[in-house]
């Protein structure tokens, strides 16, 4: 009997097939933090003596709109360019002169723009996203690299303080901003895999926050932040998140997420169709200086599970 069982078992096992994608490993949740596939630098036409930096991405309809700082001998200006696929962008058009580091957020009708105007953070608004009108100064002086979040009537600005921390300030419908409070600060010392103290990847300063308010698959609100971390040697990109946008900002355990041979600055991330897209600036001499990466659904990765 035992021999019979063994013979039958062997025969049937040999006829069998391996089933499933890793037997349960298909369509695993994808929340757009890791797993980026880095593409070529964007081919955005710009004058030879100009560089493009500080990308701020927004999805408007079926287009990706990229707001950028254009630095040329004429000074800094904010420009805008669009793409149907997130990779191929048209020639940028001028939005605001004497302005830099744009962050655009959609409101119920129209758009808000936060930017650097030399003295601090300034605001502008627009009905169509093409023509912006400056409004009264935010009063947020001494800050840089704004990231704007619109929450109903509230405007919330995340920016970088002179100390290299990321701060938060918010304003109501009167556009009077509260005193900034630190939400994320550099941490000088981390622990390596051996439990030994080592310098942190973002130990010197933080920069370039990009904050988005996302909804998770369970309906919770999560505040997502991409940011730049600096040491004396590297400039890389990392991720942090908070449940309320005010407290409990927690760094991703496997930061930095984007670590390349060149410095990486000013990340901005969007959900575009079924893909997550991440753009950032790189100090190179190529066409645009804007790098990009993408996470696409696959046999093992689901569609975006967090959306904004």
């Amino acid at each position: 009997m035992r021999a019979l069982i063994i013979v039958v078992a062997s025969g049937l096992a040999a006829c069998g097939t391996e089933g499933g994608v890793d037997g349960g490993g298909a369509h695993l949740p994808s929340r757009g933090i890791a797993g980026w596939v880095v593409g070529d630098a964007l081919a955005i036409a710009s004058p030879a003596d100009a560089t493009l930096t500080d990308p701020s991405a927004l999805v408007v309809g079926d287009e990706v709109v990229l707001y950028l700082t254009k630095t040329s001998p004429d000074g800094d200006a904010i420009v805008r360019t669009t793409s149907r696929d997130g990779t191929t962008f048209g020639a940028p058009t001028l939005l605001l002169a004497d302005a830099a580091a744009p962050s655009v957020a959609a409101r119920a009708s129209g758009f808000w723009l936060a930017f650097e105007d030399g003295a601090g953070i300034a605001l502008a608004e627009s009905d169509d996203g093409l023509s912006f009108t400056r409004v009264a100064s935010s009063g947020l002086e001494g800050l840089s690299d704004p990231s704007l979040v619109v929450d109903g009537d509230r405007l919330i600005v995340f920016a970088v303080s002179a100390e290299g921390s990321i701060v938060r300030s918010e304003a109501g419908s009167d556009h009077t901003f509260s005193a900034p409070t630190v939400v994320l600060a550099p941490i000088a010392e981390c622990t390596n895999a051996f439990g030994e103290p080592v310098p942190c990847w973002d130990g010197t300063a933080l920069a370039g926050p990009d904050v988005r308010v996302a909804t998770t698959p369970t309906g919770r609100t999560i505040w997502r932040m991409w940011f730049t971390g600096r040491t004396s040697v590297h400039t890389d990109l990392g991720f942090a998140a908070s449940s309320d946008g005010i407290t409990g900002w927690t760094r991703y355990a496997f930061n930095p997420v984007i670590k390349q041979s060149t410095s990486s600055l000013s990340p901005t991330s969007i959900v575009f169709g079924a893909d997550y897209l991440l753009y950032w600036a790189v100090p190179t001499t190529d066409a645009s200086g804007i790098a990009n990466a993408r996470i696409t659904p696959s046999a093992t990765l689901s569609h975006p599970t967090e959306t904004w």
Binding site: I33, I222, G248
Partner: peptide, 11 residues
């Protein structure tokens, strides 16, 4: 409980 969890919330 960790908002920066690699997997995040799910159903």
């Amino acid at each position: 409980s960790n908002p920066a969890d690699p997997v995040g919330d799910y159903r």
